[in-house]
Design a binder for these strands. Structure first.
Lengths: 212, 212
DNA sequence: TCTGATTGAGAAAGTGACTGTCTCCAGCGA
DNA sequence: TCGCTGGAGACAGTCACTTTCTCAATCAGA
């Protein structure tokens, strides 16, 4: 396993991201072309597109998109999605190396700045979250506690609630754990699960409902 | 008031949207160029960009973006955001002319198909909802019932919850009132407001909290 | 180790969305 | 009626992204 080709790809991926962020930090996202990034990373522009799809993809590098359904399922407890999200964020946050501050240049959080500073990147992040919601909702629906529509609503609330918390973290300067923001910000959502299940579903059925 | 220039702009706007949707329906979103749309609407490509900004903008035509802060504030009751959203949707739905089915070609809902069928349009819709969330959240925060982060989370839950309901409506074929989907889908979110206020806030404060 | 099939990187040309800039005319206020 | 101005059109340029082709390197089988 792990053929040379895979290795090359991984190496190129890192190189492109690092060099691209260097250039972005230096001259701004919009002022850097894919061609320049490719040159700096010593790969061809084609490879950049093969690996990341879009310019924004270099920054977003959708982790959720590449997460296997099994991993996602094992990560998300449908009975306590907020809690599992908080735990996941906390685990992720403490993994690379503690003490390395947010905007200290390095670290995986250097990217996050562009999530909120660059409109097109923000848009790409929203698209990623949207896809994440689409993957989460069936897991929520599988519990049978809520209708399909409600599962979608809840899944989106989770995905974009996380985003909201992340933005607040960013706006505050990024020097507190993100997980704290997620936990605090999403506390109201927990009321959903502390409500008797029977109070939610009542799926669409019966006569065509009110305003016809 | 209502100078000729305004008139021209409105007329052009309608023409562009109508003709563009005709072309999209006929040959697909991706296969139609701005130049063709401009020609069909008898305006210059520059005007298309001046009016809609992007190709996707022709379809999305962000109503929320152009809503004045006052209108938004009068529309949204921070004490019952879900309820006011449902009411707004119901009002909007019954306004143009009842009985005109969704995918019967005409009607304002012809556009919605592209929200979900065309990825780039979907992305633009997400961006619009994201901006809507950004405008809603201060209204939620103004109540003082929740922290700023929580207000952001809730605002996003509302905006993208609406989107989720709309998608379900679309997937079901679009022959029931959207408001029904919104009402049913967002029912769990109402639990947020039926929870004693004091249970939510507890804003970030005190010692730098848990994991440091 | 050699051989053939396959995969994937690079090269290059093309497309079209979007951005400036300029000109000019028509609408608006005096 | 007469400037003034804002906005529409024309146009050239940029660059993200696509498509296609070629070729080298990798991997499977003998």
């Amino acid at each position: 396993m792990s053929g040379l080709r895979e290795r090359w790809r991984l190496k190129a991926m890192r190189a492109i991201q690092e060099r691209a962020l260097d250039l972005f930090d230096e001259r701004g996202f919009g002022a850097v072309t894919i061609e320049e990034i490719a040159a700096a990373a010593e790969v061809s522009p084609s490879s950049v597109y093969r690996i990341f799809g879009t310019k924004e993809g270099i920054v977003v590098a959708d982790e959720f998109d590449h997460m296997s359904p099994e991993t996602l399922e094992s990560l998300l407890d449908p009975a306590d999605p907020v809690g599992s999200l908080v735990r996941a964020v906390r685990a992720y946050e403490s993994s690379p190396g503690p003490g390395e501050g947010p905007q200290t240049g390095r670290g995986p959080w250097r990217r996050v700045r562009y999530f909120f500073a660059e409109p097109s990147v923000r848009m790409a992040v929203c698209a990623t979250l949207d896809r994440a919601g689409g993957r989460i909702s069936p897991l929520i629906a599988a519990t049978g506690e809520v209708s399909e529509t409600q599962a979608r609503v809840i899944a989106n609330a989770l995905a974009f609630g996380y985003f909201a918390a992340l933005e607040q973290w960013y706006l505050d300067g990024g020097d507190r754990p993100i997980a704290d923001y997620v936990e605090e910000g999403m506390r109201p959502l927990r009321a959903i699960w502390s409500t008797p299940a029977g109070d939610h579903p009542e799926p669409l059925s019966g006569p065509r409902s009110g305003s016809g």
